[in-house]
């Protein structure tokens, strides 16, 4: 019973993760992309917990979903925010 719930949860997370990753690539707004990428990392860290790798999950959660995303946002702040054809107004 328990393992069935885990399996369903894992599949759900997996689908969300792939969807977020696709959205990251499609989005023309780079800041939005950075944040979506952080979401991918966050879900990956949940999956790591499900796979009983808490050490990796901790690193992934803090590096992937906080530090990298923010470093990317700072880097985008130094360049341009929108890809070609993505700027609104």
């Amino acid at each position: 019973m328990n393992s069935l719930i885990f399996l369903a949860l894992a599949i759900l997370m997996f689908i969300t993760m792939v969807a977020l990753a696709v959205a990251t690539v499609i989005s023309k707004d780079l800041i939005k992309s950075a944040i979506l990428l952080a979401g991918v990392s966050l879900i990956a860290s949940f999956l790591f917990v499900l796979m009983r790798a808490p050490d990796v999950a901790m690193a992934e959660a803090s590096i992937g979903s906080a530090l990298t995303a923010m470093i990317m946002v700072y880097a985008i702040g130094r360049t341009r925010r929108f890809e070609e054809g993505g700027e609104e107004k």
Partner: peptide, 14 residues
């Protein structure tokens, strides 16, 4: 317990 120098360090950095 789970975690260690790398994980603790990046948590502090957050």
């Amino acid at each position: 317990s789970p975690g260690g120098g790398f994980q603790g360090g990046v948590i502090i950095a957050t």
